[in-house]
């Protein structure tokens, strides 16, 4: 049996024989779904991406923000 098949069977049998692990995996998958498919997509966009496409535009935005925040002092 080649090594890849051995590794596959190791994990396959491991997952199949889980008892408590099945509940835990369910929690992990639900959690990851909430994190990546809901929170990341709808609530945590990359803010700077909306301010510019290139690195120059983003750095320009940051400098303007910094200047504004210190001028406002």
């Amino acid at each position: 049996m080649n090594v890849f098949k051995k590794v596959f069977l190791f994990y396959y049998e491991g997952f199949r024989s889980m008892t408590l692990g099945k509940t835990l995996w369910m929690i992990i998958l639900i959690k990851l779904f909430i994190m990546f498919a809901i929170l990341k997509v709808f609530f945590f966009p990359n803010f700077l991406s909306s301010k510019g496409d290139t690195k120059e535009e983003k750095s320009e935005y940051i400098v303007n923000e910094m200047e504004k925040r210190t001028i406002n002092n």
């Binding site: 835990l24 994190m35 990359n46």
Partner: peptide, 27 residues
């Protein structure tokens, strides 16, 4: 294992916050 499974990846939420709430800092 229980502790690991429930806790795993919760730290990634901090990284989400860096990109959205703390973008000046992240840059």
């Amino acid at each position: 294992g229980i502790n690991f499974a429930i806790g795993v990846a919760t730290g990634l939420i901090l990284e989400f916050q860096f990109g959205t709430n703390w973008s000046n800092y992240s840059w």
